[in-house]
Design a binder for these strands. Structure first.
Length: 96
DNA sequence: GGACTGACACGCG
DNA sequence: GCGCGTGCCAGTC
């Protein structure tokens, strides 16, 4: 059944569903179209949307220091290498 | 209409 | 662990 799967609203809803202190990868939000998440977030950047909780699959940040400060402020664990510790901060699965 | 770009992911060396 | 190349989808020129 060909489901729409990735509408802007659907993506935004997934990002809003990320609990404080946790993070998720672009691929987890939009499987098969990770660039979609970035494109949508860029257009919908707002305080209502915790875009900083969305990081790359390897734990690196896409927006840089801006994003890192937000995550550290929420208690997201970082590695000595300067990347998010996905091993502990990445959501196991989408509650949806 | 076609080609380029982008807040990405994955496989290889 | 890092850099390079390829594939993905949607938006923009």
């Amino acid at each position: 059944m060909t489901e729409p799967a990735h509408d802007h609203d659907h993506i935004l809803d997934r990002v809003r569903a990320i609990p404080e202190g946790w993070v998720r990868t672009y691929g987890d939000i939009t499987p098969g179209a990770p660039r979609l998440a970035g494109t949508v977030l860029r257009h919908h950047a707002a305080d209502d949307l915790p875009w900083w909780r969305v990081v790359r699959a390897d734990g690196t940040l896409a927006v840089g220091s801006r994003q890192r400060e937000r995550l550290e402020a929420e208690g997201v664990p970082f590695t000595p290498a300067g990347r998010v510790d996905l091993r502990a901060a990445r959501l196991p699965e989408a509650p949806d």
